[in-house]
């Protein structure tokens, strides 16, 4: 007997909840034959603004959770993703990937989460140092998260690219607001469901779906964002992000790579991109 499948509704992911866009708008994602796969929420400026408030409020407690705890949570995400990998593979295929590519991408994405989970209590040791100053002071430099980070996710490799960019940001104690791949947004929202069931505190990762042309300038000009990462090659967007970022001296990172599957995407230097160096002095004389 045939049975009508239940279709999934894709919504936004903000503050650990799945709201629809306050604007009530949507855009359609079709497969290569033009059949509707899903209607995605078309996030508005206000959705974005709300997400920033939530991400800001979540940031300090996330940063203050122990390194071990952050590592375990990232590992938990990997576990949950592993358990649902078939769904993710199917979604990628539905969005036009070949079966082999889709499988590779999902497996790599899981492994990448495990990779960065392992860094959570190690990267500080790699980047911190004690500075041998000439005066009688103990002086050390450590990394601290930059704060709230906006991420314009890669258009292709919509799952692997997304995870490769946000894992190093959150393992370093930042909270993020992501604009998912515009053309392949399904994996990002399904990934939000994984996040939501993985002990990731609400507000640490916030995912919007929508149009770059509407939202990127909002991301770049928001005065309460500390950093913006753009994955892509649109020189016009890079120019306007760079210009608007100067409003509040935002740190900008541009990843122009097309392929997030290579080993070169795994290093603690990705974590360093969203960190600040803090140096502390204290006298040592008694």
């Amino acid at each position: 007997m045939s049975r009508l499948a239940i279709q999934k509704t894709y919504k936004l992911y903000i503050g650990g909840k799945f709201p629809r866009s306050e604007s009530g708008r949507f855009y359609a994602i079709n497969d290569s034959k033009g059949n509707l796969i899903a209607n995605m929420c078309l996030a508005s400026r206000k959705d974005f603004r709300n997400a920033v408030v939530i991400a800001r409020n979540a940031q300090s407690s996330w940063a203050n959770s122990s390194a071990l705890n952050k590592g375990q949570i990232l590992y938990r995400i990997a576990e949950m993703l592993e358990g649902r990998k078939e769904q993710f593979i199917a979604e990628l295929i539905a969005q036009g990937e070949t079966a082999e590519n889709a499988k590779n991408e999902v497996l790599l994405a899981i492994d990448r989460l495990v990779y960065f989970a392992g860094w959570s209590d190690k990267y500080q040791q790699f980047f911190s140092c004690i500075n041998p100053v000439s005066s009688a002071h103990f002086n050390f430099s450590v990394l601290e998260p930059v704060g709230v980070v906006a991420v314009i996710a890669p258009e292709k490799q919509s799952l692997l690219g997304l995870i490769s960019v946000i894992a190093p940001a959150i393992v370093g104690g930042n909270t993020v607001i992501v604009l998912a791949s515009e053309s392949k947004p399904l994996s990002a929202i399904s990934f939000a469901e994984v996040l939501n069931s993985s002990d990731v505190p609400g507000g640490v990762v916030n995912i919007l779906t929508g149009k770059k042309e509407e939202l990127v300038n909002q991301f770049a000009s928001h005065m309460d964002l500390n950093s913006i990462i753009y994955c892509g090659t649109d020189e016009q967007l890079i120019l306007s992000i760079s210009e608007l970022a100067s409003n509040n001296v935002k740190r900008t990172t541009f990843y122009k790579k097309n392929d997030w599957s290579s080993d070169s995407c795994e290093s603690p230097y990705f974590i360093e991109k969203t960190q600040e160096v803090k140096t502390t002095w204290h006298p040592t004389e008694i």
Binding site: N131, P132, V133, S134, S135, H137, N139, S141, V146, N226, N248, V249, E276, V277, K278, T279, T280, W281, H282, P283
Partner: peptide, 22 residues
């Protein structure tokens, strides 16, 4: 970027200096 505890305005070539935010 720099915090001085029980001291202030100390500088050294080995000590990283610089700011956050604006």
């Amino acid at each position: 970027g720099v915090v001085w505890a029980n001291t202030f305005n100390k500088f050294d070539p080995t000590s990283p200096f610089g700011g956050t935010n604006e």
